[in-house]
Design a protein around this nucleic acid. Structure first.
Lengths: 159, 159
DNA sequence: GTTCAGATACTCGGATAGGGACTGTCCGAGTCCTATTGG
DNA sequence: CCAATAGGACTCGGACAGTCCCTATCCGAGTATCTGAAC
């Protein structure tokens, strides 16, 4: 899986602690973890195309969450970066074997593909069941100082 | 995910229908689906290293299942090909941020990593719950002619 | 007929090239702020 | 003092190389089989 997924998740989580009316430039989000700004910007563009964040150009511009953290699931973020394809991609091997019926869609009929799809759905179900708001609440419960610390550290960047 | 996983799963499934005392060369397993024999051989080597199949050299040699199909899970096969690492790999991004504690293992402490790990475990649980024998039984239930067809078609190869 | 040695053919196993995707970087289009200038 | 305007600085967005892993291939090491001859 792309490393950008980790960057996107942490950056989105940071955005949940910052004032929602304030846009944050990609350079600041990158500086927080010492990441290459241009590459993180690329990931944020993917999030923008997926409608997870909204972007603003020019001074005082940047990225902000496009909707409430309660309505953004971890699956949304992962799909925005990794794409919608499932990990196991059925190449319809059975169609290349003897006794194959060209009219059959083996992506549906092949029981191997079906078993792998079942596992993939379980994975997506877990990710879809957790929102950014859930994650934020969990972090605040485990580390109560996180919100104020994060806000202060973002204010100190570019000081 | 590697395409070799699909090849390995279908090849193992074919092995469940063939006499267990008879070793099948990689060339035959590959010819069944028109796959490149040398590359499938590479995947079978990975299965052998994982103890899923046993290999025999020389004439009348080849691969056979190393243990009963009831004791081989789909996860075993996937891990043998893809490796044991989980899809989401926590790079400990928090360690590169402000307020990081070098002594903390963020692979355990980071709640983002934990959420991704939970999804990964759900995926593995599904794969571990299904054995090759389950899959074989499902196929035989849906397509009762599969066992004899498969055996006959393997006998016709190299005819 | 039996046995033994040699040759043979077959199979796995690891070492060797080629291609595509992720990683990383750069510069241009668009936008907002600001300072200046004229009324 | 106020307003309009031109300049400038900042930010996103897409286009351009580098690197690693997956794909594909080949040849050598090892082994069981077969052949032939000798006893």
């Amino acid at each position: 899986m792309s490393e950008g997924v980790e960057w996107a998740l942490h950056s989105c989580l940071n955005l949940t602690w910052l004032p929602s009316e304030q846009a944050v430039p990609a350079a600041k989000l990158a500086a927080f973890y010492g990441l290459p700004a241009a590459y993180l910007n690329k990931q944020l563009q993917a999030l923008a195309r997926a409608g997870i964040v909204s972007s603003t150009s020019g001074p005082r511009g940047g990225f902000r969450l496009a909707r409430a953290a309660e309505r953004i699931t971890l699956l949304d973020v992962v799909v925005a970066i990794e794409g919608p394809d499932e990990a196991f991609r059925c190449e319809e091997l059975l169609k290349r074997g003897p006794g194959a019926d060209p009219a059959v869609d083996y992506r549906q009929a092949c029981l191997v593909a079906r078993a792998m799809r079942r596992a993939d759905l379980a994975w997506r179900r877990e990710l879809a069941a957790r929102t950014l708001a859930d994650l934020k609440a969990d972090v605040e419960r485990a580390y109560p100082d996180s919100p104020s610390n994060t806000i202060n550290r973002f204010a100190d960047l570019r000081a």
